[in-house]
Design a protein around this nucleic acid. Structure first.
Length: 225
DNA sequence: GCGACAG
DNA sequence: ATCTTGTCGC
């Protein structure tokens, strides 16, 4: 039984894309907290994890994690429908309200201009930034002295490739919602001081994996013993 | 028509 | 993403 329709998802993406806000709707010059979100999987169980870091020190001040059943398969360009539920759930569990959320995946740099970061940002009505490790669409121009290169798709600038760590591949930054591309790049650079992937996303990733291990161990102890 | 395709 | 050991490089 098909529980989803690609056609229906496409319609939703086109509607959501219209609601993306491309400028800063928060105090970009005075950020207190940044969050990162990521999702891991164990069979059909999704584990959503969020981490909140103090912006200046990049110290982790809070984690939130949630488990739920995966309700959507992974379909290229439709990733957000698979990950948005666990992402929203764990973000809601946070006690600290982050000023901006970094998302593991593209935002506007998507063939239909509505990647996971944008989908999430519009749904929760908060500032989000897309940070992907691989390009989904478009091509990367020449890198400038700041380690940045425009990502252009169908004649439109959709994001920025950023070399956050010298000697490593760039990460692909794009607007999620309520954040300008310039500000998004500044935030990502600040959060990736000695790593390729920005700290908030790494922390969320690690938290999700620790939770995944716990779940796998509890499952093993059930079927064998 | 063919290939590519975030996590 | 996930399945997995050792291994190359900073």
């Amino acid at each position: 039984m098909k529980r989803f329709s690609v056609q229906k998802a496409r319609r939703i993406q086109r509607e959501l894309a219209k609601k993306i806000v491309f400028d800063d709707r928060f105090q970009a010059e005075n950020i207190r907290f940044v969050a990162g979100v990521d999702v891991a999987y164990v069979g059909d169980v999704a584990i959503g994890a969020a981490a909140v870091l103090e912006y200046d020190s990049l110290e982790t001040v809070e984690y939130a994690v949630v488990r739920c059943r995966t309700m959507f398969p992974y379909v290229p360009t439709l990733l957000s429908f698979r990950e948005i539920s666990p992402a929203v759930s764990c973000l809601k569990r946070l006690k600290i309200e982050p000023d901006v959320v970094l998302v593991d995946g593209h935002g506007y740099a998507h063939p239909f201009r509505c990647g996971f970061a944008s989908h999430l940002g519009v749904v929760i009505g908060k500032p989000t930034v897309g940070v992907a490790k691989k390009l989904l669409c478009g091509s990367v121009g020449e890198f400038n002295d700041e380690g940045c290169a425009l990502i252009v798709h169908k004649g439109e600038v959709v994001g920025m490739a950023v070399i956050t760590k010298p000697g490593t591949k760039p990460v692909y930054v794009s607007v999620g919602n309520m954040v300008s591309l310039d500000t998004a790049v500044k935030i990502v650079k600040h959060c990736a001081q000695n790593t390729r992937v920005p700290q908030p996303i790494r922390e969320a990733h690690l938290k999700a994996n620790r939770e995944k291990q716990k779940l796998k161990e509890s499952v093993e102890g059930k079927e064998v013993g």
